[in-house]
Every structure is written in structure tokens, then in C-alpha cells.
Design a protein around this nucleic acid. Sequence first.
RNA 1: ACGGUUGUAGUUCAAUGGUAGAACGUUCGGUUGUGGUCCGAGAGACGCGAGUUCGAUUCUCGCCUUCCGUCCCA
Length: 382
Amino acid sequence: MKTQTVKGFQDFIGDEALKREKIRKIILEQFELYGFEPAETPIIEFEEFIKGDNPHDDAVRDVFKLSDRGKRKLALRYEFTFQLKRLAKNQKLPYKRYQIGYNFRDEPIREGRARQFIQCDADIIGSSMKDEAECLNLGKNIFEKMGMPVKIYINHRKLINEILVDEGIEEKNREQVIRELDKLDKLSKKKVADNLKGLGAEKVLKIFTGKEKDFEKYKFYGEIKELKKFCKMYGVSVEFRPFLARGLSYYNGSVFEIWSEELNVSLCGGGSYLVSGIQSTGISFGIEPIFRLSNVQGEGANYQVISVGKDTEAIKLAENLRKRGIKVNLILDKAIGKALDYANSKGVEKVIFVGDEEVKSGKFKVKDMKSGEEKLLKENKL
RNA sequence: ACGGUUGUAGUUCAAUGGUAGAACGUUCGGUUGUGGUCCGAGAGACGCGAGUUCGAUUCUCGCCUUCCGUCCCA
């Protein structure tokens, strides 16, 4: 029997799983602090719905397709946003929902890029510019909690478009030009210039790599200015990056990305778009890149209770500690040596012995696994 | 998807056209009131298939897989 995982899919266990869960919890906690409500949606949807309005778009060529016994044409979701069309119906606006879960893409894998991956999205249907600033602040807070220094870049799709029209770039080439410009964070200027030449757009490179001051003459730079004003109120520092576009064709307003300051990696992205004609804003975090760069520690059990022939009392103590929110691992049937060994390997902070001595005196022997120090403590002091 | 690359225990690595070894981890014991040390024992692997060969883990081919690059990234 073959037990190996499918290409691009993997198991996460032990410390790795604990760390991933910790990251998920930090994100979830912040989402809720900002008033987003949770949502759960199906992983499988009709292929037609997943593909959306432009079924030939490259963007959707990587969906996993499947069918059921009724021969329905189905697919695995590859992102969350399209499902908002359904969720947002008949909701009091602004409707703020967050969702954390798996998405799937049948695409080549690479370090930090699997075919099954966790995305954490927070979106506001019926948003204003204040919401964009709020999303940016939310992002900032999350990375602060993770202890990761980041840079926040912003831009506006309408500004990009205005410039391309202004420079007389043919409409059929505009989208590709935007894609090439977006690569300026990865490729050299020269390479991008070469790619732009083929599209008759090499002259715009100079504009998009120019100084911020030179953008003030464009009408839609006003949007950047406005967003910056709000960001200032929230205390978020952002940087205008004129060539930032994000590949998505659905963005129609502000776009932003949060980058790791140490490594040239994008950790989080988002922007404004329409959901059934309603202006909306969203932010999306991928767990995998954050996992690779973050130093957050996962949290296993805090305490381990070891019964030394006093199972009833040990169970009672463990349950009482758990009621107080302490994570307890209870060991009843292992030799002491083995039990300590186990505590070691699981990184437990303290072990508590429950044996004759403890039951008689009402004081438990507590051993600190790092220092080896032992103390006798009453239950309420544990 | 394309080009290159990789494949031996859970992991990291050996060796070999004729019985596949180690380290770490794991299990058990020395050790039912004290761990991180030590000692002993056990379990555990040639990605899959075809071909060449008396015999293939080793050579050849196909598939799968690994990693890197390109395309793309909603």
C-alpha cells in the first residue's frame, strides 16, 4: 500500500503543526478584534462558478477539476473571494467576514508553495477608504504579533491605468504591461525593459520607476494621498510603489502588499474590488510564507501530571488544571523515568507527581524540567 | 506545462552486477518516586514497471517522485 502524499500535498505534525496553528491563531484573533465574522464555505463548487466571468483567463487554468456520480462538473476552490458573491447577498452593509481554510491549485510547486495551502482572508463588502487603512493596520498588527519587521507598499489600479492611457499604450496590451511592471520587484530593470519593448511600452518604465513627486500631476494620485492620510490617522506607515499591481484582474482600486523587511518576499496582499457591483476591500495572508520566516513558537502542553500509583487523584488534578485553562498531559501507566523522558521530548515546562506523599500531605511535588528544581506546592499554587 | 536534476530505514548519509551498513530517531530491557548520560537488545529501506543478465538496488527505457529554473500566481 502506497502511503506517500500526492505531489504538492503534505502532512504537518509535531512542532511544525504547533507552529502553524499558533500563526493561524494570531491571525484569527486579530481578525475578530476588528469585527470580522467567521464564515465557512464549501471546498467544492460548480466549476462554472469557480471560473467566474472569464473562464478563459489564465488565472483559473490551475483549478483542480472533479465530478460526482451525478456527472456534475465540479472543482476545488482556489481562493475565497468568488464565494463572496453568494455570501454577501442580503447582508447588512458593510458586511465583514473572515475565513481561514484550505484552497487548492493544480500548479507547479516550489519552496513555500504547495498545491493545498491555507489562506486567511478578511474582506469588507461595502467598504470605504477608511476600511482600506484599517486592513493595512490589521496587517501591521499581525506581523507585529509575529515579531516580523515588514514594509507596506500601496498603489492604485486607476492610477496605473491613467498613466498607461496617458502614454497611449494600446488597450489590448495594457494588462500585459501591468504584469511586466509588477515584476520589477523580482527582475532587473533591464529585463523588464526588454519585456516592455515587445509591447511597445518601454517608455513607461521611466515613469513607473520615477519619484513619487512626479505622480502628483495625475488625477488618481489623489487616491493615494487620501489613503495615506487615513493611514496616518491609524499610525500605519506605508510606501507608495507605483509599479505594484498584483496580477488579479478584478482589482479596481487600491492595491497593497506587505513585504518582509529582511527577505524579498511578499507575505500578504490585498486591495479593492467589486462584489456584485458593491465596492469592497480585502486582505489575504498565506500561512506558508509566514511559517518560513516567522520565529513564533508553537505551544504544546504546559504541564504533565504523572500518577505514581494514585490514578484517581491524578485524574482529578489534571481535570482541575484543565478547567483553569492549563494544557495538561496526564500519564498514568508509564515508569517515572519514561514519563520524564516523554515530558522532555514534548518540551513540557513542568511535571507534577501524584503519589502517596502528595495525597497525604496535600502538597504536590512540581519539577521544573529545565532547571530540574523541585518544589512542594498546594494545588491552588500550581 | 516545459528544461534540467534527484530517488537506499522515520531522518541524514554509505556500499555493491551475487547476503544492503551506520548515525540520529523509535520500541523494549538494565531502571514502578526522578529525565536530558550510559549500556544491551529489537523493529525498520533499495519509488514503480518493463528490458538486458544465470542473477539487477546497481546497467537501459518508461512512469512516478524530489529539487532548481521558465510560464503563471486570482
